[in-house]
Design a protein around this nucleic acid. Structure first.
Lengths: 210, 210
DNA sequence: ATAAAAATTAAACAACTGTTTAATTTAAAC
DNA sequence: GTTTAAATTAAACAGTTGTTTAATTTTTAT
């Protein structure tokens, strides 16, 4: 079994710089020398600490996903109506991804280029766990008779996250389209309008009856 | 004014190879030598025909998006109920993107890394035009009193496309999750289940009344 | 203070990057 | 058939790539 790695200050410093650069320019678009320069370390330190560039990415993913699990599970035991739970879950999702834009952008598109055989079990675990939570809330709502039953639960996550990602991946386009001029306004739009839109959409899907 | 370029057979052959490789390994992950080898041409031919690697990408985007515009506009004049139009629009969207996975994957994530100052006016035009079509259908439905009015039209596209993309970008994960074993079954799942889910979601969003 | 371990460095490695050159072959025009 | 243009080629260009080496400095343990 592989023990869970613990990172020291220097390593974390490297990880944070790598995160920014990978998110900005992509994994292949970022060189170890870029990272070293930005982090003010010698280029050999990356290999020294992480072994390789690929393992640096693995470490980054592990570092960022390991502590994201807990928050959601707490939601399950709260005493709320199903629809309120869903709304809270969505707000939690968006808020969390929005404040971890870097790593999620990296994940979103390094996952897609299958070439890399990354060891990202921690990320898969996070996903399955999140899906279980969502499933629990929805079946609870179905049992109570407030949610319809002819829906595909595994496709709800793509709708929630996909809507957010598509918006964010096309940030420039939407800022132009919606006359959003500053970074603050952009984040505000996400937290208010986009979150509301997604909540409204999922709510409609769950409780609509023709 | 720049005239619209026409591509000869050899150029198209290069574009198609580039499309496959860019989609598989990303723009930065693909070298001109990769392309040349796969297309069985000399490496100098890319510069000869397109000027540079970046301009090759531009050409590819132009080549793929220029003829995608027409289909949707025809939909507007058909004599259908608003909700039927929306359903048809969604099916059209998904089907088209699904049969042009390569270029859309490239667009989806080369757009995101802002470094490139690509000349992709043709793509922006396509977008604005598509949004206009969607807007027309929805306002028509609102005027007829079948669609609710407190919705954000610009955020509907992210929900439609985002759901699809998120699903497709995480193809491996969902094939595992949903026990989809073959490429055919995967495409079938998209055309049937995923399309239906998106239609169901948008329909619920548009006509739900609390 | 001494020995052992960890951290840091500059330099080198060979392979690969996009692009250009100048020469040669093929095709088109007259 | 000759001339002009287009297409194709191998070779070279100057940088950059990820990684390793071996030497040196710094830290830790004894």
């Amino acid at each position: 079994m592989s023990s869970t790695p613990d990172f020291n200050e220097k390593q974390i410093q490297i990880l944070l710089v790598a995160e920014t650069l990978f998110a900005e320019k992509g994994f292949d678009g970022t060189s170890i020398r870029n990272i070293a320069k930005e982090a003010k370390i010698n280029i050999a330190m990356v290999s020294y600490y992480f072994g390789s560039k690929e393992r640096l990415l693995e470490s980054l993913i592990f570092y960022r996903t390991k502590d994201l699990k807990i928050q959601i599970e707490n939601l399950l035991v709260e005493d709320l109506e199903p629809i309120a739970k869903i709304n809270k879950l969505i707000a939690l999702y968006i808020n969390r991804i929005n404040s971890n834009k870097g790593i999620f952008r990296i994940l979103h598109f390094e996952m897609a280029t299958q070439k890399k055989e990354l060891n990202i079990k921690s990320f898969y675990d996070l996903r399955k766990s999140n899906l279980k939570s969502l499933e629990a809330i929805i079946t609870e709502g179905q049992d109570k008779g407030v949610f319809r039953k002819d829906i595909s639960i595994p496709l709800i996550t793509p709708t929630i996250l996909g809507t957010f990602f598509h918006f964010h991946m096309n940030k420039e386009y939407f800022m132009d389209l919606l006359n959003i001029n500053t970074e603050d306004l952009y984040n505000n739009y996400i937290n208010v309008n986009l979150t509301k839109h997604i909540q409204q959409t999922i709510k409609a899907l769950l409780i609509y009856e023709s």
